[in-house]
Design a protein around this nucleic acid. Structure first.
Length: 896
RNA sequence: GCGAACGUGGCGGAACUGGUAGACGCACUGGAUUUAGGUUCCAGCGGUUUCCACCGUGUGGGUUCGAGUCCCACCGUUCGCACCA
């Protein structure tokens, strides 16, 4: 054994297997697993099943980043563990391969997106395989594969046939830069989520999916799943169910009434004005002649105001329409205003304004000098004047016959009364809107829909024609898939009908002598990812999207791991489709994903930042503040300050601060940032594997901290786990004894088996590794070293570092694969130490410890504890009042 | 502004239902082996201090024999929502 040589960094300098050489071991075992299809999903229905799923990646041109292996390694560890525990594990991988980047690249270079996509998939597959992840590659799916698209289109037809897909002309989020419409969920602060391009509201014909029809089930069934509370809360808030009442306010002049939605019908007596949205259809009838010019000017301005402007505006704006409605309970006239703080898209686009008990109404009333009336009181007393809106519940005042009722009782009573009088009804509203499902791009699934065309000649030649969009025809299921046409130019252009509108030969076709036009919109990227977990069940099935038997066998997904950025969109859409498919009888369980875990982000290495003023002199960080517009300013003078990165060697620690070594008076900022190309702090998994091996990368990412936490990368940290693997390898090269382990070593083995197993099941992968390190440290000292102990270590290490474990298993004289070897078992009785260390406290303060046999009595402990010198010192001149005894843990002597 | 989560050594982090704070690893210090080492091995490693002892889990209170853990208030970081009536 020669420990004294260079670590095996170069493949060519390692002739034998004397030292741990990941560059030799890892390809060997990857080839073995591939050849023997070690991870093929077992068919045996008698085995308990585990469906363990990763969110499949979008295969970008940049390749894998270190964030991908984090979640993938975690699930891989569970899969290898459960296989060893005798479960049938389904663990597939695939590609979410439609999407904008490939298309943008095509626009720039003319390369067909299918080619780019294929190339990227090959890179991703190679990188993922280099990590030794145990996927069943026979089940790989690719959302852009026509054999997959076929079934995405088929599911769309199921939605269409159930009346859940419809067309509408609505103002949509049109993004000129991207040449497409975006879902509400894809617009953030008036800009596109992807690329931050401005988005304008434009009325266009769109396909919509009626997700609102499932709002209640999507909300209620959150109780059925084991997901992070934060994610459930986000979905619940996104759905935004609110219960209230619809109330009719008759128009003061003429027929009809203004309908409003309110969650606080108990404040009806506090209404001092009404507000309608600028787009409200009744606006025209309500406007008085005197106000018409002013109202029209306001509406025109509001229409042109982008969402961005609306947000920036802090002051409430609005104009009185001059029109009035009649209060349904008091019969008094109520003035109607128009203001853009009321949104046409929610409720009825009109509200009753109760300034006394709604902050927005209060602000509006104050701006325009409208009276404020108090109708709810905390204690039943009326205040002379409200200085702010009282939005809490309370007791009704100034409310005629309802005075004295609590908020809850009032709501129920008045809603019933209004309903009886035909003036209102109970009503539930949702924040959730129907899903805008069409995009005007090329690289997506075509809709299996076409329309009749009236045309004198050949519409393909651009001759005059009319497409009857109001008469959509669904393609026959037997005609699927509808493939994308080949194009030379992928530019979206200005035609809001989409890129495909330019593929005239594809778009127009004749059937029985009549012309038809295909839908030229394509589906959004979410479509493919809404159901990929179902295709994995039966990926090669040419007859069905998946077989009923496969769905019954494998659903729901037992563990789903992926980023928190999908907390709302992907997970809500997929749940929606799943429920539709359940209603259509294609799946049986109500929820697709039973347990969900979000892996945390891995940040770049910690960076140190120093600040300099305009003269170039260093400034300590407490004298610098961030400027809202970016950049930094001097806290006192306000002058601009520049930031610069400082190498770690130039810094040192001083107390809790980091300072410049050259000038310890200068404090630095020390923090880790999100990895990004522009910051130059991206860690490439390929480089890490080349230097340390895949097992070290896997182990390091798991050892970094809890899976869910955000944590910074550390280049020196990976050497710790690398060293651990080298030591495991070295241990297996030592002479071993055939004798069974005994005594403390035996106990440690059993404790470690229990701990590692429990930690894997609970996804506490960091502490599991720590237990393995402790075991290794003990085994390194053991003389003699029992073979069985080394084998146990290797078997426990296997899920974490599978290549090394397989290699050592073979070296220890066993036939591969270790995956076929059952998980070690432990004996509960051997997990308890024979001698326990008991804490001894006097008055709740630690004074020492005593060694006792497990199960010792309080009397024995007390006798032993009182012998401690430190205890005697504390008890001098005092009497023992009381003793607290926690079996096998602690003795606390209370003195007085 | 509203809501949620989180604040533990120089660093990443441990600590199950309140019960020996700092497991494990990194970094650092000392020693051994080595021609040498960014190798390996051994030892040390929260702070103050005369070895007694005291202080210590963001800050200030509280509950308890006992609080990192429970309660209240505040400060800070991160994430989500942001006129949804």
């Amino acid at each position: 054994m020669c420990y004294g040589l260079d670590p095996p960094r170069k493949p060519w300098d390692s002739g034998g297997m004397e030292r741990y050489t990941p560059s030799l071991i890892e390809p060997k075992w990857q080839a073995y697993w591939a050849e023997h299809k070690t991870f093929r999903t077992p068919e045996d229905p008698a085995l308990p099943k585990k469906y363990i799923l990763d969110m499949f990646p979008y295969p970008s041109g940049a390749g894998l980043h270190v964030g991908h292996p984090e979640g993938y390694t975690a699930t891989d560890i569970l899969c290898r563990y459960y296989r060893a525990k005798g479960h049938a594990v389904l663990h597939p991988m695939g590609w979410d391969a439609f999407g904008l980047p490939a298309e943008q690249y095509a626009i720039q270079t003319g390369t067909h997106p299918a080619i780019t996509t294929q190339k990227n998939i090959d890179t991703f597959r190679r990188q993922i395989q280099a990590l030794g992840l145990s996927y069943d590659w026979d089940r790989e799916v690719d959302t852009t594969d026509p054999a997959y698209v076929k079934w995405t289109q088929w599911i769309f037809l199921q939605l269409y046939k159930r009346g859940l897909a419809y067309q509408t002309e609505i103002p949509v989020n049109w993004c000129p830069a991207l040449g497409t419409v975006l879902a509400n969920e894809e617009v953030i602060d008036g800009k596109s989520e992807r690329g931050s391009h401005p988005v304008v509201r434009l009325p266009l014909r769109q396909w919509m999916l009626k997700i609102t029809a499932y709002a209640d089930r999507l909300l209620d069934d959150l109780d059925l799943v084991s997901w992070p509370e934060s994610t459930k809360t986000m979905q619940a808030e996104w759905i935004g169910r609110s219960e209230g009442a619809l109330v009719k306010f008759p128009l003061a002049s003429g027929e009809g009434h203004l309908e409003i939605f309110t969650t606080r019908p108990d404040t009806l007596y506090g209404v001092t004005f009404m507000v309608i949205a600028p787009e409200h259809p009744l606006l025209d009838r309500l406007v008085s002649e005197g106000q018409r010019a002013e109202v029209e000017a306001y509406v025109a301005k509001a229409r042109n105001r982008s969402d961005l402007d609306r947000k920036a505006a802090k002051e409430k704006t609005g104009v009185a329409t001059g029109g009035f409605v009649t209060h349904p309970l008091t019969g008094q006239p109520v003035p109607v205003w128009v203001a853009d703080y009321v949104l046409m898209g929610y409720g009825t686009g009109a509200i009753m304004a109760v300034p006394g008990h709604d902050e927005r109404d209060f602000e509006f009333a104050r701006t325009f000098g409208i009276p404020v009336v108090q109708v709810v009181s905390a204690e039943g007393t009326v205040l002379p004047e409200l200085t702010e809106a009282y939005t809490e519940q309370g007791v009704a005042v100034n409310s005629g016959p309802y005075n004295g009722l609590t908020t809850e009782a009032f709501k129920a009573q008045v809603t019933a009364d209004l309903e009886a009088a035909g003036q209102g009804a109970r009503r539930v509203e949702y924040r959730l809107r129907d899903w805008v499902f069409s995009r005007q791009r090329y690289w997506g699934e075509p809709f299996p829909i076409y329309f009749p065309v009236t045309c004198e000649g050949d519409p393909r030649k651009g001759e005059a024609h009319t497409i009857h969009y109001d008469q959509p025809i669904a393609m026959e299921e037997s005609e699927l898939p509808l493939r994308l046409p080949d194009l030379e130019d992928f530019n979206p252009g200005e035609d809001p009908a989409g890129t495909l509108a330019r593929a005239a030969d594809w778009r127009f076709f004749q059937k029985e002598g009549r012309w038809f036009a295909r839908e030229t919109n394509t589906m959004p990227q979410w479509a493919g990812s809404c159901w990929y977990y179902l295709r994995y069940l039966d990926p090669k099935n040419p007859e069905e999207a998946w077989s009923k038997a496969a769905a019954e066998r494998w659903l729901p997904v037992d563990l789903y791991v992926g980023g928190a950025e999908h907390a709302v969109l992907h997970l809500l859409y997929a749940r929606f489709w799943h429920k539709v498919l359940q209603d259509a009888g294609h799946v049986q369980v109500p929820e697709p994903f039973g347990r969900l875990v979000h892996q945390g982000m891995i940040l770049g290495e910690v960076e140190y930042t120093a600040y300099r003023d305009a003269q170039g002199a260093f400034l300590s960080k407490e004298r610098v503040m961030a400027h809202p517009d970016g950049g930094f300013r001097h806290r006192d003078t306000g002058e601009e300050v520049t930031a610069e990165r400082v190498a770690e060697e130039a810094t040192e620690k001083k107390g809790s601060a980091v300072v410049l070594k050259a000038d310890p008076a200068i404090q630095l900022d020390a923090r880790a940032y999100k990895m990004s190309k522009s910051r130059g702090n991206v860690i490439n998994p390929d480089d890490v594997i080349r230097e340390h091996g895949a097992d070290a990368l896997r182990l390091y990412e798991m050892f970094l901290g809890p899976l869910e936490a955000t944590k910074p990368w550390s280049t020196s940290g990976i050497q710790g786990v690398s060293r651990f693997l080298e030591r495991v390898y070295a241990l297996a090269q030592k002479p071993r004894s055939a004798a069974a382990p005994e005594g403390d070593l035996l106990r440690l083995l059993h404790k470690t088996i229990r701990k590692v197993g429990e930690d894997i099941e609970a996804l506490r992968l960091n502490t599991g590794i720590s237990a393995l390190m402790i075991l290794l440290n003990e085994l390194s000292k053991a003389t003699p070293l029992p073979q069985e102990a080394v084998e146990t270590l290797v078997r426990l290490l296997h899920p974490y570092a599978p290549h090394l474990a397989e290699e050592l298993w073979e070296q220890l004289g066993h036939a591969p694969s270790l995956q076929a070897v059952p998980w070690p078992t432990y004996d509960e009785a051997l997990c308890v130490d024979s001698q326990l260390t008991i804490a001894v406290q006097v008055g709740g303060k630690m004074r020492g410890t005593i060694q006792l046999a497990a199960g010792a009595t309080q009397e024995e402990a007390q006798a032993e504890g009182l012998k401690l010198e430190s205890v005697q010192r504390q008890m001098e001149g005092k009497t023992l009042r009381k003793t607290i005894w926690v079996q096998d843990k602690l003795l606390n002597l209370i003195v007085g």
